[in-house]
Nucleic acid binder design. Structure first.
Lengths: 331, 331
DNA sequence: AACTAAACTGTAATCGTTAACAATACTGCA
DNA sequence: TGCAGTATTGTTAACGATTACAGTTTAGTT
């Protein structure tokens, strides 16, 4: 493998000069720099990142940590996240992917191994990890799950606003009897989405009857059972907001199973806009959570943070968008 | 950050001894080793991988390269692959993820940066990359796409066999008029699946009429148009094998659009078993391609290859499994 | 007890970079 | 021309680990 010393020999300069020339130091005369750059290119020189890391104490790797990669249904998630990240990430940074649940020793998560860390968080249980990263002083951005702690950089979708918009739309279509299948208890996203649901109903002076609040946990199955319960009500709702698409799919299957036509008899609204929301039958009307955008923005923030570590953290909200498809009918 | 020299000072030995003790060298007396290990643990020692890499010339990173992460529909793909890989990968290996299409300079793909490379290949166009990796002498395993070259370690699903099994099943359900929507022309997988299709029909002495071979390119839209063409035939088939699930979904939508009931009027079979195959309406009967298993096996092969580079390459086939759901009716 | 071999530990060089400091080469001005 | 001051380049020591080689114990044999 060829090193800066090889280049130095060919160029007739010291390896230090080569290092400086290749790293854009202002100390080098233009002609020297050009010559060295040309020679380096000709010799197909590629720097040894281990050596670089050793002395600069930077690792050139960004860690992307998921709550879990062993389980969890939302899979388009990962792709979208990686897309967004690699879109803005410099080519000579490496992106490594890990499941938080498979990190054995927090001690291995050190500044020397990660220049920055992105946590794609889906659960409260990530907090221990997040705080470890924070106390280690590694530049950190938490994506997707809203944190209470204002001391950590956080990029999330504006769930509440997005849900409200979706419900407003359903109201405009003539619906008046709304139910909600709630998300996993204790999750910030669950309460945010529920809030958006209530915001809209209150704004339209619609009643909030307790029997229209069905418990769920974001799983397909929970959507199925919650929907079943709602359909068995004496006076079923005409529209159901499901706190995520997975539950909406479960709900839709429940409707089929109970012979309730979607959307004629029950209209359905989801949240997330997972890839297959477009291909359910009928296609699911849902609130699009722009994971790629969140990841991209988060990565930009992380890069900033890496450059000026002193920066004070922010909470950023990314706008969702309503994907109107075929599961909400006009009444 | 604490180094082996710090440990050496505390333990009252040289840093060499520490290095040896911590790396399982047989030269170290058991008591010394134990004492050093205890001290290292107490001091929360974590080795500096840059320094290690520099001298051992190993990078402790495995690269996972996808044809593209910017495009391509099959997204559950990535998750499953990462799952399978991280399942068998030692914790002190890093897994980095890249899109082949976003690799600017092949020169940057060097043995010194990757101990091994996994290519999750979806397209012929990956060959240039694959051969670069091979000529660089980096241990390499290509997953998912069958290669012609026997010189490269290759792990794929046994598509042909899997399709045959699915078709056999449909025949057992009484179907006799079979059409196929083919995959992207030129892809090995397309011809393999087509072969499986024909294998079964020939085995059952069923006729292969040319009008039942519809062109496709693995996209949802191509599935839609191909199905439309098939439905417009004077004598439409009773069962259609779609060379992947995406096209099956497109086909299903075409059926809806043309008022053809699935499966009563047309039975549908897919391939891949993407996550949402379970949640189409009706749920799609399909051939499961076990990406996680393929990745896991491939990673094991890669690890072997890294340990004994001389090993001669193999082509491994992983068995598919037929997922019987609701899109094939009995006639 | 003396000597040899085996078992263990230490010294110092090395990996490819960067960077503090030293050295040299240029420039302009008196 | 000589000299200060700046611009450019070189020397050398790190960074934290591994490893060839040298050195020191320890055990075993006579």
């Amino acid at each position: 493998m060829i090193t800066i010393k090889d280049i130095a020999r060919v160029a007739g300069v010291s390896h230090t000069t080569v290092s400086r020339a290749l790293n854009g130091s202002p100390l080098i005369k233009k002609v020297t720099r050009d010559r060295i750059e040309r020679i380096a290119a000709e010799m197909n020189y590629v720097p040894n990142y281990s050596a670089k890391s050793l002395v600069t104490k930077r690792s050139f790797t960004i860690g992307l940590f998921f709550s879990s990669i062993e389980q969890g249904t939302s899979s388009s998630f990962l792709v979208d996240a990686i897309k967004g990240i690699s879109h803005v990430l410099d080519e000579n940074y490496n992106l490594t992917v890990h499941g938080i649940d498979s990190v054995q020793h927090f001690a291995a998560i050190q500044p020397q191994r990660f220049d920055g860390i992105l946590v794609m968080s889906q659960s409260d249980e990530d907090n221990a990890f997040i705080y470890h990263v924070k106390t280690m002083g590694i530049p950190l951005v938490v994506l997707n799950r809203q944190l209470e702690d204002p001391g950590i950089m956080n990029v999330v979708a504006n769930d509440r606003e997005g849900v409200k918009e979706a419900l407003d739309y359903a109201v405009s279509q003539g619906h008046r009897k709304f139910a909600i299948i709630e998300g996993k208890p204790g999750f910030k996203s669950s309460t945010e989405r529920k809030q958006g649901f209530m915001d809209s109903l209150i704004a339209h002076r619609l009643s909030l009857s307790p029997e229209y609040f069905a418990a769920g946990d974001y799983s397909i199955d929970s959507g199925y059972s919650a929907m079943t319960a709602l359909l068995n009500l004496a006076d079923p709702p005409t529209a159901v907001f499901c706190s995520n698409d997975d539950m909406a799919i479960g709900a839709m299957n429940a409707c089929y199973a109970h012979g309730a036509a979607v959307p004629q008899q029950v209209s359905l609204i989801g949240f997330d806009d997972i890839m297959f929301a477009r291909y359910t039958n009928p296609a699911l009307t849902t609130v699009r959570k722009p994971i790629a955008d969140i990841s991209e923005l988060g990565t930009k923030m992380l890069i900033q943070l890496m450059q000026q570590p002193g920066q004070n953290p922010q909470q950023l909200f990314v706008k969702t968008s309503l994907m109107i498809r075929d599961t909400v009918t006009a009444l």
